[in-house]
């Protein structure tokens, strides 16, 4: 049987942890997916840059495809 908290997490409900600072709370309330920030913090600066490059490549590919269709 899955507990309510785990099920909530599976369903994407994020809870502001009690020890979160004011900047964290503000960003959370603004609507940022804080799990992405927490995950990024586990990486080195170079790994973050590599991941960013992958995202950027994808976006640029979509834009190029859109331009070709137009």
């Amino acid at each position: 049987m899955i507990d309510a908290a785990t099920l909530a997490q599976m369903n994407g409900e994020q809870v502001c942890p009690p020890h979160a600072g004011p900047a964290w709370r503000e960003a959370f309330e603004y609507g940022f997916d804080m799990s992405l920030i927490e995950e990024t913090l586990t990486k080195t600066p170079e790994q973050r840059l590599d991941e960013h490059q992958q995202k950027l490549n994808f976006i640029l590919e979509i834009e190029a495809t859109r331009s070709r269709k137009n």
Binding site: A23, W24, E26, A27
Partner: peptide, 13 residues
């Protein structure tokens, strides 16, 4: 800046 402030806060923590 909203995001960067979170990072700075976590780093201080």
């Amino acid at each position: 800046v909203r995001l960067l402030r979170v990072l700075a806060e976590k780093r201080r923590g």
